[in-house]
């Protein structure tokens, strides 16, 4: 009898998890499709001829015609759109860069590793410092440390991240000379060394909100009844923290981190510009100033897909780690309907 009920519950849970997976996947897919559509039509919204904008007013008529051919501007809009979608979804081909004359996908693949390394470096710094700071603040609630950890972010929130970057450069690179002013160093050590300042800059923009949320979570869980029960049962404090408090605080923090990651990618592109790092940011902003439309579209698409993928993955991890997250979808749907 009990076994039967248990089996039913298990089956139902698995079913709901499956639903959740499908729902998350569909939403991610629809976002990607919509971004693709947006990226396509944004360029067509521009008044005037894109080919003329790329080559300039006084360009040769034959040149303009050639570019129009290449961008398929002579075809009807529906045909252009079909070709654009077909190339992307069937061949993963986002078109050739006008400026460099090579496939935009190859360019992105060439520039992406530095950006990914920077994002990963910044994420590691962010997570480690946020966890330590939030832990300190929560365990020493209302002490001087707690106040400092809570007050300082109120000021840093008003600072543009690129300005923090400029200050760090002028202090640690120009005055103290500990780090290079910009660019990417050679060799494994030089590479990470030169990425330290940009990574710290990006992390500084992320840490405050993460610390605030994690601190709230920790405090709430530390006050929960089950923690009191564990204490009463003489479970060692370290075990309570590791196995119960942190585990409960993990999922909400992960979710917030994944939301922030979207800003972080955008922020990374900006910071690359400040520190003259040759990554996706350089590729994008160069493409913008060269009016290299296919390349702009490609960089946007790849960045967007990356962000969507990461948030899909974190959502699935969260659902796996915390069964309550799977229920969220349902209550959310009720609110909406």
């Amino acid at each position: 009898m009990t076994a039967d009920i248990q089996y039913k519950i298990k089956k139902e849970t698995r079913l709901r998890a499956g639903h959740h997976f499908v729902y998350a996947l569909l939403r991610a897919l629809s976002v990607v499709v919509l971004i693709t559509i947006a990226v396509f039509f944004l360029m067509r919204l521009v008044p005037g001829d894109p080919a003329v904008m790329v080559l300039g007013e006084h360009a040769d008529e034959a040149e303009i015609q050639k570019l129009r051919e290449q961008l398929m501007l002579n075809e009807p809009l529906s045909k252009q759109f079909a070709a654009f979608l077909g190339n992307i979804f069937l061949h993963f081909d986002t078109g050739d860069s006008i400026k460099y004359g090579v496939s935009s996908r190859d360019l992105v693949l060439q520039y992406a590793p530095v950006t990914l390394a920077l994002v990963a470096y910044a994420s590691v710094i962010t997570v480690i410092s946020a966890v330590i700071l939030a832990f300190l603040a929560a365990t020493h609630k209302d002490s001087l440390i707690d106040h400092a950890i809570r007050v300082i972010p109120a000021f840093t929130q008003g600072m543009p991240v690129f300005w923090i970057g400029l200050i760090l450069i002028s202090v640690f690179a120009v005055n103290l000379g500990w780090f290079p002013v910009g660019g990417v160093g050679s060799g494994m050590g030089g590479f990470w060394h030169s990425l330290t300042l940009p990574a710290v800059t990006i992390a500084l923009g992320q840490i405050p909100s993460l610390v605030r949320s994690l601190r709230e979570q920790l405090l709430e869980i530390m006050d929960a009844d089950f923690v009191l029960t564990l204490r009463a049962a003489k479970i060692p404090e370290s075990v309570i923290f590791r196995k119960h408090i942190f585990k409960n605080a993990f999922v909400p923090t992960l979710m917030l981190f994944s939301v922030n990651l979207s800003y972080m990618i955008g922020g990374t592109l900006i910071i690359e510009r400040v520190f003259a790092v040759r990554g996706m940011g350089k590729l994008l902003f160069d493409a913008i100033s060269n009016r290299d439309f296919p390349l702009v579209q490609a960089v946007t698409l790849y960045c967007a897909v990356f962000v969507v993928l990461i948030s899909l993955i974190t959502e699935l991890i969260a659902a796996k780690a915390d069964p309550r997250m799977r229920q969220k979808e349902k209550s959310f749907g009720n609110n909406a309907g």
Partner: peptide, 9 residues
């Protein structure tokens, strides 16, 4: 939508 990237785009 990844907002910051969409602004650039």
């Amino acid at each position: 939508f990844p907002s910051q990237i969409m602004v650039f785009a």
